[in-house]
Design a protein around this nucleic acid. Structure first.
Lengths: 210, 210
DNA sequence: GGAGTTTTGTGACTTTTGTCATAGTATAAA
DNA sequence: TTTATACTATGACAAAAGTCACAAAACTCC
């Protein structure tokens, strides 16, 4: 609870933080837990206190695509709109590591928007951030070659998890990047030869000159 | 003015429409006019009454990317956030054909958000729509081959302009799709051979079985 | 009508990415 | 320990997309 105040006081007004503490539901998840799944009703918007969440989406042909990561103090724009319109979830949110969050009930979302200016800017900032991340993904896919994208992907993963050792199989990476395992293995091996990383089973260790 | 009421009365409350008429600035643009340019201060948010706007964005290496089209009754989420934070424009908006719009001054954006529930939902819907369009672009680039994307691009262009004859050079198309002219020429020629369209100089006529 | 510009068409070639087949290696399960 | 399973490596080949070079056609402007 004190933790909550500490975390949020820089950008939300005190009264709002109290309300969040009163109305929100504190939840915690372990690595790999599914926080929001496809086609479920979303009855709350998550406000992340610690840890990282991966947000995915499925297209018409059931291919999954990585939308973005959410870390501390961030929130999910997609969840927001889903909540507001009481729609079924079009996204899936998975805990990348141990996650704690406050679940804000959907009735409050709207109410606070008119009541607290800081909430309003928080929500809009959140939208803008997601928007920009999507744009960066778009640019990345549109203009960069796979090897560059892979490097970006790994860098981002390291940043988001805060670890130099990435615990993923080549296959998982390939799926998130929308390509095949063989291709990723090849590129990774190349990067290993360039002394930028070392490959293990289910683990990639990024070296200093990555 | 009557036109305005007619257009908006289905999703905005009457009092708000009056305010829009009072506070907004009516503007019109001709095909090709630049409505918003990079690095300019955005002092208003456009609410489109008729015509179509193309919204572009530049990345770090100065490559332009097509974000989306805006048509009647739609509005630009990017402009909104720019306005709210009095930021310089990161986007460019160009009139695809003759356009009329109401320019909403930025002070009002925020005020109306708390004052009119219909404005709030309008803005959020607008965000969600843009969001979804971006996602569709992302999926398209990530999973579809260029020929499929080109077909989608042409279909969308035809829909947006309401014309079966698309007035663009191969080069313009290539730039919007982030590839080279030669590639587009080749694909277009292929589609012509399949009797799906006819090529002219600066014009592509879509045939019935496109 | 001729000079210059823009647009389009096409063959030849390269690079990038995807796919298939197949083998080896680590890990878990029985 | 053996067996099954998941993960990784790699050669060979195919397909997609990008690049280069050059020519022809269409249009613009004197």
């Amino acid at each position: 609870m004190e933790n909550l105040k500490e975390k949020l006081k820089n950008f939300l007004e005190a009264k709002l933080i109290e309300e969040i503490a009163r109305e929100g539901k504190f939840m915690s998840f372990k690595e790999g837990d599914v926080i929001i799944d496809y086609n479920k009703n979303i009855k709350f918007m998550p406000l992340i206190l610690s840890g990282t969440i991966r947000v995915m989406r499925k297209d018409e042909e059931d291919r999954e695509i990585l939308l973005y990561y959410l870390s501390s103090n961030e929130s999910c724009a997609m969840a927001y709109t889903c909540c507001m319109e009481a729609r079924k979830s079009e996204i899936k949110a998975i805990a990348e590591d141990n996650v704690t969050l406050v679940a804000i009930p959907h009735e409050k979302l709207d109410e606070w928007l008119t009541k607290y200016p800081s909430w309003k800017s928080y929500i809009f900032n959140s939208f803008t951030q997601r928007f920009n991340e999507l744009l960066r993904s778009l640019e990345s896919i549109a203009f960069h070659k796979l090897d560059q994208r892979l490097i970006k992907y790994l860098k981002n993963k390291a940043k988001v998890t805060g670890k130099k050792a990435i615990q993923l199989s080549h296959n998982q990476i390939a799926e998130e990047m929308g390509t095949s395992r063989v291709v990723i293995s090849r590129l990774l091996k190349q990067l290993e030869n360039e002394k930028k990383l070392i490959l293990y089973r289910n683990e990639i260790k990024l070296l200093s000159d990555f």
